[in-house]
Design a binder for these strands. Structure first.
Length: 495
RNA sequence: GGUUACGUGGCCGAGAGGCUAGGCUCAGCUCUGCAAAAGCUGCUACAGCGGUUCGAAUCCGCUCGUAACCUCCA
């Protein structure tokens, strides 16, 4: 197993060589969505990022347990003290049972993940399914003296924690600075200290989602579910924890505090944060109301878009930007991505049908070296903190070679068997298995062969009227014909 | 206000002290019944101003601009 994979660790602000705690096993936890409304594209970007991380680790030979939670309770709506959670609020608005909301948006979320070709996590635990585990963690934290109960709510005691640990180690915040900037909450809070955060909240009379606990009826705080579930499925310390950049503080900082408060050990070895997706230069988020839903993008039913863009086009667009950079979404960028994606798929089709020569008669050292260099650059890119942009650049370079082979501008017999296989395997494996980019097949399916045959015949007999008609038909299915010296084939229309 | 990032060619977007990223667009060429596809060629940049260095887009400082976090968010 190649151990030179480097991961940028938010904790140390450096790229570090990845060494799993219990190789060949890797434990990875990613903060999943809150299912009180549709996933938006920003969520999709983050989950796609970690999908590629999981895929690449598996490609490297690791056995990955990928845990991504579903938050179906607990995120407070406005002020901490309003004591109402998001799921509950939305339920009342729509006159639905909370779990009905949860169900609807969970199903919707899964559909989008499938459309984007994200592999389902190994375990997808829900917060409501782990109330007991959460209560257990809270009890441990109280027993260690890092939490206190007030009127049926339990708060994490940040000042007590600070005596032994560094609250702020992940986000780089210092507590003094935090305090001077914490907004006053109208003195309504039960908290002893403004930086303290809720582990358990007492439920008011009107609160729908509620569970019995040692402190009375209530519901878990925002951060505790991830601590409880990651510990349960991955252990007290595990390898990778991922999430959006916006979760770094306070969510992930709190997770560290909760874990250390409960069992002292640092919970995570490598913290990874995916950067934000912006729309018109602004973060796309539910609360700002400037988010485009995946479905709107796939159907083109959003005023900010001139047309529909397929799930794979979106995935390609995501991967063209490194995950730690912000990405500004625009109609133009998507259009460019669509063409690029189809070009990559045409290359994929070409490389799959490329026949391995029976003899390699005229090895061209320069060409062979070039192909090896490209393949190396792809792996090097992915090894360098999952740089999918570099990997894609390499794949395009490879695609160029492949079309030259296909069009007879270069001959595969100029290679060696090893190079030929490397080229083919690299293109296919990286594109499909690691980057998760697959063909979006045309709706005519098996008819393509017939169409192609007719076209070839018409060309042969110089029946140009028929040729043009067939071209027209193909175009209507998003395909074009290619006339090469070596033969006739079809390709995805890159429009 | 505090903190942290970022500012790359017509557009998107990698890289990060010397070595062509890549995609899209545009112009031209080869090929072609015409096209398309493919290939080739051209346009070739690092916000501004200083500094460090033999050498800076890359390091340092300042200025301007943008964003994120500090409050629910992926």
């Amino acid at each position: 197993m190649d151990s030179s994979l480097k991961i940028y660790n938010t904790l140390t602000r450096k790229k570090e060589i990845f060494e799993p705690l219990h190789a060949p096993h890797v434990g990875m936890y990613v903060c999943g969505p809150t299912v009180y409304s549709d996933v938006h594209l920003g969520n999709c970007r983050t989950f796609t990022t970690f999908d590629v991380v999981a895929r690449y680790l598996r490609y490297m030979g690791y056995k990955v347990r990928y845990v991504r939670n579903i938050t179906d309770v607990g995120h407070l709506v406005d002020d901490v003290d309003e004591g109402e959670d998001k799921i509950g609020k939305r339920a009342k608005l729509e006159n639905l049972e909370p779990m009905e909301i949860v169900q609807r948006y969970t199903v919707g979320f899964h559909l989008v993940m499938q459309q984007l070709n994200n592999i389902a996590p190994s375990i997808e635990p829900t917060a409501t399914g782990h109330i007991i585990e959460q209560i257990n963690v809270i009890e441990k934290i109280i027993a260690k003296g890092y939490a206190y109960e007030v009127g049926g709510s339990v708060y994490f005691d940040v000042p007590a924690y600070l005596k032994k640990y560094n609250y702020g180690e992940l986000s780089g915040r210092v507590i003094e600075e935090l305090l001077s900037n914490t907004r006053e909450l109208d003195g309504q809070s039960d908290k002893k200290h403004p930086a303290d955060f809720a582990l358990w909240k007492a439920a008011g009379a009107a609160h729908i989602m509620r569970w019995p606990s040692p402190w009375g009826e209530g519901f878990p705080g925002w951060h505790i579910e991830c601590s409880a579930m990651s510990t349960k499925y991955l252990g007290k310390t595990f390898d990778i924890h991922g999430g959006g950049m916006d979760l770094q503080f306070p969510h992930h900082e709190c997770e560290i505090a909760q874990a250390r408060g409960a069992h002292e050990d640092a919970p995570v070895r490598y913290w990874m944060h995916a950067n934000m997706l912006t729309m018109n230069g602004q973060k796309m988020s539910k609360s700002l109301g400037n988010s485009i839903l995946p479905e709107e993008l796939f159907t083109g039913s959003n005023p900010l878009l001139s047309q529909a863009f397929s799930p794979m086009t979106l995935r390609f667009a995501f991967l063209q930007t490194h995950y730690r950079s912000t990405m500004d979404l625009s109609n133009e960028a998507l259009k460019a991505a669509q063409i690029g994606y189809k070009k990559l798929m045409n290359g994929l089709r070409n490389v799959k049908v490329l026949e391995k020569p029976t003899e390699f008669v005229a090895p061209d050292e320069k060409l062979i070296a070039e192909i090896h260099k490209i393949c190396d650059s792809i792996v090097a890119g992915l090894h360098d903190d999952f740089n999918t942009a570099i990997a894609l650049a390499g794949l395009f370079n490879l695609a160029k070679k492949v079309s030259q082979f296909q069009a007879g501008q270069l001959l595969t017999s100029q290679l060696t068997a090893e190079t030929f296989e490397l080229m083919q395997a690299t293109y296919m494996n990286i594109t499909e298995n690691v980057l998760g980019l697959c063909e979006e097949k045309p709706s005519i399916g098996g008819m393509v062969t017939h169409l192609l045959k007719d076209y070839a015949e018409a060309k042969q007999t110089k029946n140009f009227e028929k040729v043009d008609a067939l071209r027209h038909v193909a175009k209507s299915f998003g395909l074009v014909f290619k006339d090469m010296k070596t033969g006739i084939d079809w390709a995805y229309d890159e429009v």
